[in-house]
């Protein structure tokens, strides 16, 4: 194994692989994560994409990728990865292509696909031991269709289909655990606002084989209703408040980066229009307490 572990920000690449000129929103947290990930993965990759915002990355005749790309459908990107991986393996075996021509197969989907429509395809791919990396950029809703709630939407968030006074009634699905329950090689959560942690994890994943799955929380200015300049601030708060635990599943164990001093969850919520009803016209103390309690309970369980 090639142990070039990222230690400092200075180890991060300062030239960037992902091309400029994409149609993603200004300040897109998903794009931020993708460009950081791509720098580590390198260009010898083929992204297999499901329907979502990122589908618009490659709109004829423009693509930001220096490697390859295949758009499939909302439900079946992992199956597309299966086809590409198997075909590359067959071609390698038959000596039709050289080892240098091989590519890392990377699924790229949103949360709507990962947590919902594509979950069965992902489950199948993991259970078949497919050698691939899955990147889910989680903007906590069906962003491309206008941010309706998805299975990844957090409790109380307003979305285009949960506009009522208490927002989304459901709770964010625990995809990390669902994935981990399949016992894949690697599962990790990352966020673009913590580039060093992200780079380390992607590098780790890159050096493994088998199913390696990454969820990147992706602050989304229009979907979460905040000014694009705050994408990184909000991302950092997601981690500092403990709302977005940075963790890894490896060798059957889950390892957390435990935040030193967790700041109150409301610091994170307050910055986003989708939670504004928790603060105005009147603070919803009950809901805020409940949300804080859930996060506290999570971390209490971790430290036990």
């Amino acid at each position: 194994m090639n142990e070039v572990v990222m230690q400092h920000m200075t180890d991060l690449p300062s030239t960037h692989l992902l091309g400029t000129g994409t149609p993603m929103c200004s300040g897109c947290g998903g794009l931020e994560a993708l460009h950081e990930i791509y720098d580590v993965l390198g260009k010898n990759t083929v992204f297999v994409n499901a329907a979502g915002c990122m589908t618009l990355l490659s709109v004829y005749p423009f693509t930001p990728f220096r490697g390859s790309w295949l758009y499939t459908a909302m439900a079946s990107a992992p199956a597309g990865a299966q086809g590409v991986r198997d075909a590359l393996d067959i071609l390698l075996e038959q000596k039709c292509i050289k080892k240098e021509e091989d590519l890392e197969v990377v699924v790229l989907t949103g949360d709507g696909s990962a947590y919902g429509m594509g979950l069965s395809a992902t489950s199948g791919a993991i259970e078949r031991g497919l050698d691939f990396i899955y990147i889910c950029y989680d903007n906590e809703g069906y962003g491309n269709t206008g941010q309706q709630f998805s299975a990844a939407t957090p409790h109380a968030a307003k979305t285009a289909t949960s506009r009522g006074s208490s927002g989304f009634a459901g709770y964010k699905k625990d995809l990390f655990s669902i994935w981990a329950a399949h016992k894949p090689s690697y599962v990790a959560t990352v966020i673009g606002s913590e580039p060093l942690d992200l780079a380390r994890k992607i590098e780790k994943a890159k050096q493994m084989k088998g199913p390696r799955l990454i969820i990147a929380l992706a602050p989304c200015p229009p979907g979460w209703d905040f000014n694009p300049r705050d994408t990184v601030d909000i991302g950092k708060l997601a981690v500092k408040t403990g709302v977005w635990p940075l963790k890894e599943y490896i060798d059957g164990k889950v390892i957390h980066n435990i935040p030193h001093h967790r700041v109150p969850v409301e610091d994170y919520l307050q910055k986003q229009g989708r939670f504004v009803h928790l603060f105005t016209p009147k603070r919803n103390e009950e809901m805020l307490n409940e949300m804080q309690a859930r996060v506290d309970a999570y971390w209490d369980a971790v430290s036990e």
Partner: peptide
């Protein structure tokens, strides 16, 4: 090489993707 997918939707996706990569499917 034979692979059983978890649905026909995935099966046809994998078939197309493999053909796009350059094998007879």
């Amino acid at each position: 090489r034979m692979v059983t997918l978890e649905s026909e939707h995935s099966m046809i996706t994998a078939a197309g993707a493999a053909a796009a990569t350059g094998v007879r499917v």
